[in-house]
Design a protein around this nucleic acid. Structure first.
Length: 296
DNA sequence: TTCCAGGGGTAGA
DNA sequence: TCTACCCATGGA
């Protein structure tokens, strides 16, 4: 067992971040809320498969930190890689100062920074977040879990279980066999095409998480992927830290009808108009409305 | 049996 | 830009 620590801001809330959306229910994540531990089977760059456990540990008198423990064939030289993985998964490098200033100034959002909400759980790679988002489209959440479970069996195996498959491991499959294996129906060809484009190097999706790319450019590139429409593009953009577009889905429409529209079904234009005043944070403000019952 | 889910592609106007 | 229709899958 290899142990390391990551110093975090005292306002960071591990549970609020892990439970910020459904990703913690999708393998190779495992979450034990009773212990406050998020685990993940992970394939290192050289192919070794390890299991990483993360928890928010001890508030010492002045410092708050994450305790990161890694099982398996792991060395001190892996420190930097594991540190980067955890930072990305929990959006530790997001600067939400302006966002919290905004929520504090609004009458109904004082709970946001008190709860430490606003950060999201992400996969360590853009590839994995893209695939999982694709598998949330036009299906139920339970079927998304089912599809991801089956997909993950294509990843490298280990005593800890399977890691998330690489683009190569998906791309080498026959499209029909992949579709049948994952039970993903018409999404199968979209999944296979994405895997093939990433595996071949034709598409470098990991660079999308680099800072400084404007969201319009990203929007255009993600939208060009088969299977990624308005909802999915905005979902991925949100995970990439761009909150100026709304990811409107049935969950959002239901929430909006209840909270802002007297129980009546809103059009998407009505929803967009409502959040427009929140500018570059509008997507995250909308998501706070969705998750409010869980954390407020 | 029919409907629909954390929608999206395509054709035709 | 907008609409109609189609798309697998499985639970309600």
């Amino acid at each position: 067992m290899f142990t390391q620590r990551i110093l975090i801001d005292p306002g960071f809330n591990f549970r609020a971040t892990v439970e910020s959306h459904g990703w913690y229910q999708l393998p190779p994540f495992q979450y034990h809320p009773e212990h406050g531990v998020l685990s993940r089977v992970h394939q290192m760059p050289d192919g070794r498969i390890v299991r990483i456990h993360v928890e928010q540990s001890g508030n010492t008198s002045r410092e708050t930190f994450l305790l990161v423990q890694t099982e398996g064939d792991v060395f001190a030289t892996d420190h930097a890689v594991i540190d980067a993985i955890v930072r990305r998964m929990l959006c530790l490098d997001w600067d939400l100062g302006d966002f919290y200033a905004l929520t504090r100034s609004l009458p109904d959002y004082g709970w946001v920074d008190r709860a430490g909400a606003g950060r999201l759980l992400r996969a360590p790679s853009v590839w994995e977040d893209l695939v999982k988002t694709l598998l949330t489209t036009n299906t139920t959440w339970s079927q998304t879990i089912n599809m991801v479970r089956k997909l993950v069996t294509l990843g490298g195996d280990s005593p800890f279980g399977h890691a998330f498959p690489t683009p190569q491991q998906v791309a080498v499959r026959d499209v029909a066999a992949l579709t049948a294996h994952v039970s993903c129906g018409y999404r199968g060809p979209y999944l296979h095409t994405l895997a093939a484009q990433v595996a071949s190097g034709e598409l470098n999706v990991e660079q999308w998480s680099e800072p400084g790319i404007d969201s319009q450019t990203l929007h255009k590139q993600i939208k060009s992927l088969k299977g990624f429409g308005d909802y999915a593009v905005a979902s991925v953009l949100r995970l990439l830290g761009h909150h100026d577009v709304l990811s409107i889905d049935t969950v959002c429409r239901d929430m909006f009808a209840r909270k802002h529209h007297n129980g009546e079904k809103p059009t998407d234009a009505v929803i967009r108009a409502h959040y427009e005043p929140y500018g570059k944070w509008r997507g995250l403000i909308m998501w706070m409305d969705v998750i409010r019952e869980d954390f407020a």
